[in-house]
Amino acid sequence: MWHTARAIRTFLSIIFWAFLAVSSTVLFIGAVLIWLVTLPFDRDGRVLHLYSCFWAQLYFYVNPLWRLKVDGRERLPWRGPAVLVSNHESLGDILVLFGLYRPFKWVSKAENFKLPLIGWNMRLNRYVPLVRGDKASIAQMMTDCEYWLARGVPILMFPEGTRSFDGQVKPFKDGAFVLAKKMNCPIIPVVLTGTARTLPKHGWVLDTKADCHVQVMPPVDPAGFHDVHALRDYVRDLIIAEKARLDSGVSTPAQA
């Protein structure tokens, strides 16, 4: 029985990765065309980003074993600065968070921008690269984020810095909260569950089923906190509590 289940998962994984490769080739061509057409009037790349949201969500649309529920999307701005912060469980978080279908710029590892097709699309979108532990790269990342926030474009960061191995929310780094304080814009906590069963951290064989849930929480005004650390710890506690609620299956909605 175990061998049969493993064989099924392997077969489905082969189909998934083959479809991703073929579809990404076609969709990247579409991304280049959209970039060229919209560049004169959409300097912030909002249209291309929304197209990229569809690209990522396509793998949920065609996979009957993956389900995604997004609550609280209306709390996200179409225009105006905001710092979105999310817990981080797997590579699948990227696909899931594109399901927000709102303009924002990702902050992502610099090596992701080197990936064929997907990484090239990240460059077209002018997402923000970061080399972990490199002070010059961190400083440039902060400068780039300030630029987008000043233009009224939200950014999205994983304040844990890397994926959690056990699903527990790791300590947060300060960067997102420094930006929110400096730019006087809201922090919007985003909570993910179920994404650890999408794309594996190691290997290529997928779990056959994933029920993913995204909860966008109410914006947090940084002006109400005396320093960055107080803001950081408050938001982390909010995310931990909301994640526990979602994992427990309690249906009470996030606080309005």
Rank of each mutant, 00 (worst) to 15 (best):
H3P: 02
A5L: 15
A7E: 11
R9G: 05
F11Y: 12
W17G: 07
A18Y: 03
A18W: 08
A18T: 14
F19Y: 09
S23T: 14
S23F: 14
S24Q: 13
L27Y: 04
L33E: 00
W35R: 05
L39V: 05
D44H: 10
G45A: 10
R46C: 07
L50D: 04
C53P: 01
F54K: 05
W55N: 00
Q57P: 00
Q57H: 14
F60R: 00
V62N: 04
N63A: 08
L65D: 03
L65A: 06
L65W: 09
W66I: 01
W66C: 01
L68M: 13
K69P: 04
W78G: 05
R79E: 13
G80N: 09
P81K: 07
A82P: 10
V83Y: 02
L84S: 01
S86H: 09
L95S: 09
L95G: 02
G99P: 06
L100I: 12
F104E: 08
K105D: 08
V107K: 08
S108K: 06
E111T: 12
E111I: 08
L115S: 04
I118S: 00
W120H: 13
R123K: 14
L124R: 03
R126S: 11
K135A: 12
S137V: 10
E146W: 05
W148I: 05
A150W: 03
F158R: 00
E160P: 08
T162H: 08
T162S: 13
F165H: 13
F165N: 08
G167N: 08
G167W: 02
Q168I: 13
Q168K: 15
F172G: 02
D174I: 05
D174V: 06
G175P: 10
V178M: 11
V178Y: 12
L179W: 02
K181P: 01
M183S: 11
I187V: 15
L192D: 00
A196Y: 08
L199A: 02
L206Y: 08
T208R: 06
K209L: 07
A223I: 11
F225M: 01
L231Q: 06
L231G: 04
A241G: 04
L246E: 03
G249A: 10
S251I: 14
A256E: 12
